[in-house]
Design a binder for these strands. Structure first.
Length: 232
DNA sequence: GGATAAGTAAACAGTG
DNA sequence: ACACTGTTTACTTATC
């Protein structure tokens, strides 16, 4: 994923480390063994190919790594099986709607779930109660938020937020967009948790439950980090 | 229960 | 000398 998201479709090991650290906050506090695992997998897996750097390049050491085109479908299949696929901060930052949210003080959780493929819209996923809408707390939508609860009827009635065209354009740039996957972006806005997903996505109850569990897992993970005394 | 894949730890050599 | 990179082996764990 790190390599695929890079502009040149190739990254040094250090670049892969940085992408992981930016995309998966867990690893910021994790022991360093995962770096060894990254290098181990790059060397061992036939899916990755080492590109020797030009001798004229004096910046950094080591080689660049790319994904072998012939193994790319297999890698995407792995993602498909896992049902989970986390995206980069840059992807979120490139999202105009999320940038708009950032202007309102949105703090992004930066987690995504891939399920299907299509255009995008924004849905409200989790809210203990509707936010107070003030001049410095503008609504992202005139539609009332839909709480993420075990009550499936409420979830089926989730309303779309105006969001479609800009995000659809971004999705075409997604290097994994041809994989049959799209990204679900979570981000935090006050006490709400928002979700960006394809416009014509139909969420079945099983998917909704998975998303709810994912949201709860994030909250639980955050609580554990708080207990451990670390910020997240 | 066995085969396989994935994850992790460790050692070691090469390089900047 | 040191840190980083890349390779390899061994072991554990998870999945099929």
């Amino acid at each position: 994923m790190a390599i695929d998201y890079s502009p040149d479709k190739r990254l040094p090991v250090k670049g892969i480390y940085e992408w992981i650290l930016n995309s998966f906050p867990y690893y910021r506090a994790a022991p360093g063994g995962w770096r060894n695992s990254v290098r181990h997998n790059l060397s061992l897996s036939k899916s990755f190919r080492r590109i020797h750097r030009d001798k004229n390049q004096s910046v950094g050491k080591g080689s660049l790594w790319c994904v072998c085109p012939e193994y790319r479908p297999a890698l995407l299949e792995v993602l498909r099986k896992t049902q989970y696929y986390h995206s980069t901060n840059s992807n979120l930052l490139n999202n105009p709607a999320l940038l708009e949210g950032a202007d309102y003080g949105v703090s992004m959780v930066c987690d995504t779930v891939a399920i299907s493929d299509s255009l995008s819209q924004t849905l409200l996923l989790s809210s203990p109660s509707p936010p107070a809408l003030t001049s410095d707390n503008p609504p992202l939508s005139s539609n009332p938020p839909c709480p993420l609860t075990p009550d499936h009827e409420e979830l089926v009635n989730m309303e779309a937020v105006e969001y479609e065209e800009e995000v659809g354009e971004e999705m075409e740039k997604d290097p994994l967009s041809d994989s049959g996957y799209i990204e679900f972006h979570y981000y935090q806005y006050h006490q709400y948790q928002y979700l960006v997903l394809p416009g014509d996505t139909e969420l079945d109850l099983e998917t909704v439950e998975i998303l709810q569990l994912d949201a709860e897992a994030q909250e639980a993970a955050g609580s554990l980090l708080d207990l451990a005394g670390g910020g997240h």
